[in-house]
Design a protein around this nucleic acid. Structure first.
Lengths: 207, 207
DNA sequence: AGTAACTTGTGAACGAATTCACAAGCGCTC
DNA sequence: GAGCGCTTGTGAATTCGTTCACAAGTTACT
């Protein structure tokens, strides 16, 4: 398959959200123009994004809402359950575990790990906190697909190395550091510090 | 000033983090190549990024670590305190308030707002939760620069409208929705759902 | 059946961001 | 002070992503 731009993938995720909204309201069809309006983009962009994966629309009519939802879910691999481990049982980890949209999309939290002795063994959102050193053993047995990394910045790279060693191929990182991983491991970083600093820049350098 | 790409701003923020690291370790100079290695980019990229704002390096030598730190901080507007209000006193808001890197960079939380009657008036991380309806009145008096939006998705747009009306020009949004705001208001969205879905896509469509 | 009103899908044109490549500057050594 | 090794700063080339523009398909109406 041709290489797909990151920006395209992110927009698909966005479109899907609107489609689900439309679906719930019982609407049958939607045009690229309507999707574009909601997503803050252009209709040509919407059509181009979709065209990488096939032709899902009907000329003159638009897209069938349930059909396009289904297709995007399929493209994005959201037709299945993903098994997620949270690594780092701190405040952010806790907030994430409670985050509803998580389970809603089929991301099921199946294990929680920490390093500190006084956390290990404690109950935590329906789970028991496990020793990070068990990750290597657990990963295959528990069929962990994705690790959510919520450890302090200074431990992030070392913990990522553990995750990689355990054979996990996808990581969502919340530590405000740039991580190094092999090419076959996907790492996405959510860096609020960076976003805040972008705002600071925007406020400082306005025309 | 020439328009600066968002990606450039984000990288500057990244470079700054490495520089501070180097600074603490007492290193005097750094090359674009070293910065690039850490940031997962190329030396040409680093130099180009910096060149939009001036020439800070010395040929043959590299960049002075403290000097470049200072320059980037200045460019990014990080030489001052930014006054931040958290809007939405839920789990995510709480996790953020505790987030250390926040204050560290000069982002000071000066007020917390919520809508629900049983939260208003309660103590919260050294603050008292205020009624969201007071935001309009407070914004100028408290000199609020940035609002962090951590309300549920379905209330996000309406709350943003309040924030805009209160005259706040920068918003960090954690609700997983696309928001509409006037052009003179900067909105950055941190959307974990989208990142997770990108991972799902990556896992599904690997070569 | 013909026409009008829409909307998709997609090459081509455009624009933006990244990478290349190299002249020019700096410090060190002999 | 000439030569060498290193590194910056930046136009030019290239790559990548977005927008344009239009042929072709669909429905609705007369």
């Amino acid at each position: 398959m041709k290489r797909i731009a990151e920006s395209t993938v992110r927009r698909l995720s966005l479109y899907l959200r609107f489609l689900e909204d439309f679906e719930q309201r019982g609407l049958e069809t939607i045009s690229s123009d309507e999707l574009a309006r909601r997503g803050g983009t252009t209709s040509a962009q919407v059509r181009k994004d979709l065209s990488f994966f096939g032709s899902f629309g009907k000329r003159g009519l638009g897209y069938s809402v349930p059909e396009l939802s289904r297709q995007i879910r399929e493209i994005m691999g959201l037709g299945r359950e993903w098994r997620v481990a949270i690594v780092g049982a701190g405040k952010i980890g806790a907030a994430l575990a409670q985050y509803h949209g998580f389970a809603q999309r089929g991301f099921q939290i199946v294990a929680v790990y920490d390093r500190s002795a006084d956390k290990i063994g404690r109950p935590w959102d329906g789970q028991t906190i496990r020793d990070i050193r068990e990750l290597d053993r657990d990963a295959a047995r528990e069929r962990i697909d994705i690790a959510v990394l919520t450890v302090p910045a200074d431990a992030a790279q070392a913990t990522l190395d553990r995750i990689v060693k355990a054979g996990i191929k996808a990581v969502l990182n919340f530590a405000p550091v740039q991580l190094q991983a092999p090419a076959d491991v996907s790492v996405k970083t959510v860096n609020m510090a960076m976003e805040l600093e972008s705002l600071s820049f925007a406020l400082t350098n306005r025309d």
